[in-house]
Design a protein around this nucleic acid. Structure first.
Length: 604
RNA sequence: UGGCCGAUGGUGUAAAGGUAGCACAGGGGUCUUUGGAGCCCUUAGUCAUGGUUCGAAUCCAUGUCGGCCAGCCA
């Protein structure tokens, strides 16, 4: 709710890393008129926290150097992509950068495609982006690699005419066989020396739909003996008679990543094309295509950094899809998922994610970041802004025997000790109340500061009570406590300074409202779910979700959507954006409070 | 056994030939009407071996370990 409202808070200093250093050097050398990055997901799944790192890097650089970061759908494979993903990706990116880098978001007018033009006597195509700050009245949409198919087709023809690309009729199996292996050179395709005229003709017929799927491909003529497999005459186009989510039935041949990506970058005027480490071996190919073509404008360059891994979760789209499709979570936005939509649904503020990403650093070392770093960033953000409220998750009834039925005392509860301007709210203390079952121990362990038979404890914002009697049911289960209240120890009372070891939270029974509370925990029981090749399904945390019916204070009966709360001594919560209803609140736990007692007690 | 890339406390990262620092985690303390937060203190590190140098985490060599690459996926 208040995510952009707090943009006045000091933003941390711009981080420094080897990529930013390279960009800064390019700026200092005057190599580009404007820095232009891009975030190019394939719309075949939801974005996850690993993408968040990339988004923060790419938009962070655009922001820092006064440039733009294009949001581009890298949609060259019609078989895997879907409009559902285009929409979710767009929403996730906008949410993550809102109030921080919206002015750097590069989009384009709906339906726009690259315009042919001439630069310094050379024919060229350019797909200019419209940033959030360059406001336009028209409707904007992300950029799509599929909007460049016509331009890409032209570049492919140029390669053919140069004699560095050819149509190959080898089957998929034979293409594999001819490629060789990492330690064994490949062999030239028998179609490698076709004439330019024949290649042009065949490529045009490929486009015209004369060949079935797989009948032939367009390949770059590079070096079948290269130690880098990606330089062994890589495929440029394959035939796919398939409907594309963005171009419909217009095309039956589709470009492959290596060819499409570098040229998409070029068409958009990208200066720094930042991707993850697994593309490092593709960089010579990225450069090869751009260098073969007679390009009019400065060409982009690719840089690689290590993708993010986080402990106690999995990150690949394939595995996340499996969790969803196998029903192990409720959907892509299940609060236990490491997806951006899952984290959002859990109540994690975008700013916490950005701060997390910033602390990660950018290197070429593939490691695993401990989830505690993320958790810390979330608590840090929520601690300053969340309103404190009293809620009892596992209620135990307490009767204050010296308070008469109907008698009531109004007390002032602090809304946020980190922010005095948040003020106080009145809460009522009366004869019957609820406390946390865990806050009473009939046989207390050593150093137990909470309520025990005969013991004293302070009720937060109220007074000290003493346990006089323990009532149990037939099975010996504690069902009720009879206590006396020392009203002189109330805030402002004559004995308010009296010290007791423990302070517990509580809710007055007459004022309590019932609420469903969803207690989410980490999805896996192992820090590295896939360690030693084991199936991540075998280490799913069976207790990753527990639902309880809590007693919450009346002010929580109809929570404002988007509002963050700290249930004192428990954790951070917010009304579930899907399921919470006025008068029937449903709270989702974003994260627990750090609890040093739980650690001492061995988790409890 | 081919190529490319990497290696700094438990984890993630700084140090661009000159005092190995920061964050998270861990430990201790202080404060506290949240066993929260804050504040203070603290444990713990340059993969190995040579070389260059007055001086090496940094440069060079060799080795070790790890990641990536043989999709008509991206």
């Amino acid at each position: 709710m208040s995510e952009s409202a707090d943009s006045s808070a000091p933003s941390p200093a711009e981080p420094s890393d080897f990529i930013r250093d390279l960009v800064a050097a390019d700026v200092a050398a005057g190599r580009y008129s404007r820095i232009h990055t891009r975030f190019p997901p394939e719309p075949n799944g939801y974005l996850h926290i690993g993408h968040a790192k990339s988004i923060c890097l790419n938009f962070g650089i655009a922001r820092q150097f006064g440039g733009i970061c294009n949001l581009r759908m890298d949609d060259t494979n019609p078989a895997k992509e879907d409009i559902e993903y285009v929409d979710s990706i767009t929403a996730d990116v906008k949410w993550l950068i809102e109030g921080w880098a919206d002015h750097c978001l590069g989009l384009k007018p709906s339906g726009a495609t690259p315009a042919p033009n001439t630069v310094e006597g050379k024919s060229d195509f350019l797909m200019p982006a419209v940033s959030g700050s360059e406001s336009s009245t028209g409707k904007l949409e992300p950029l799509f690699a599929s909007d460049y198919f016509e331009a890409l087709y032209g570049y492919a023809l140029e390669l053919i005419r140069k004699g560095v690309a050819y149509v190959c009729d080898l089957s998929a199996e034979d293409t594999d066989a001819y490629r060789g292996s990492p330690d064994r050179p490949g062999r030239n395709s028998p179609y490698r020396e076709r004439s330019v005229a024949e290649n042009v003709d065949r490529f045009q017929r490929m486009r015209a739909g004369e060949f079935p799927d797989g009948a032939c491909t367009l390949r770059a003529k590079i070096d079948m003996a290269s130690p880098n497999i990606w330089l062994r005459d890589p495929l440029i186009y394959r035939i796919r008679h398939a409907e594309h989510h963005h171009t419909g039935a217009k095309w039956c041949l589709y470009p492959l990543y290596d060819f499409a990506h570098c040229l998409s970058d070029y068409l958009e005027g990208i200066t720094h094309s930042i991707c993850t480490l697994e593309f490092e071996v593709h960089r010579p190919l990225y450069d090869w295509f751009l260098n073969q073509l007679d390009l009019a404008r400065p060409r982009p360059h690719q840089y690689e950094f290590a993708r993010l891994n986080v402990s106690y979760t999995v990150m690949s789209k394939r595995k996340l899809l499996a969790l969803v499709s196998e029903g192990r979570v409720t959907g892509w936005d299940d609060p236990r998922m490491p997806t951006i939509s899952g984290l959002r649904r859990r109540g994690v503020p975008a700013r916490a994610l950005r701060n997390f990403a910033q602390r990660l650093g950018v290197t070429k070392y593939n490691g695993v970041t401990e989830v505690s770093v993320l958790e810390h960033a979330i608590r840090e953000e929520l601690n300053t802004s969340a309103l404190r409220r009293l809620a009892v998750l596992r209620p135990l009834k307490v009767i204050l025997t010296n308070v008469a039925p109907g008698e009531s005392y109004t007390l002032a509860a602090t809304n946020n000790p980190e922010d005095p301007s948040a003020g106080t709210r009145p809460i009522a203390l009366s004869r019957e109340l609820w406390i946390e079952h865990d806050d009473f121990a009939e046989v207390p362990p050593p150093k137990y500061f909470r309520l025990k038979p005969g013991g004293e404890v302070r009720l937060k914002y109220a007074c000290i009570i003493q346990c006089r009697e323990v009532i149990k049911d037939a099975t010996g289960h504690v069902t009720e406590l009879r206590c006396t209240a020392d009203l002189d120890t109330r805030t402002g009372g004559p004995n308010s300074g009296k010290k007791v070891k423990g302070t517990i939270h509580w809710v007055s029974a007459v004022d309590a409202v019932e609420a469903e509370v969803r207690l989410y925990d980490r999805l896996f029981t192992e820090a590295e779910p896939e360690k030693d090749g084991r199936d991540f399904r075998s280490v799913l945390n069976p207790k990753s979700l527990e639902v309880v019916t809590a007693k919450v204070e009346r002010s929580l009966a109809d929570p404002t959507p988007g509002m963050r709360f700290q249930f004192e001594r428990i954790g951070y919560f917010w009304p579930d954006p899907q399921d919470s209803r006025p008068g029937r609140p449903v709270f989702t736990r974003t994260i627990t409070l750090k609890d040093t007692w739980a650690k001492v007690a061995g988790g409890g």
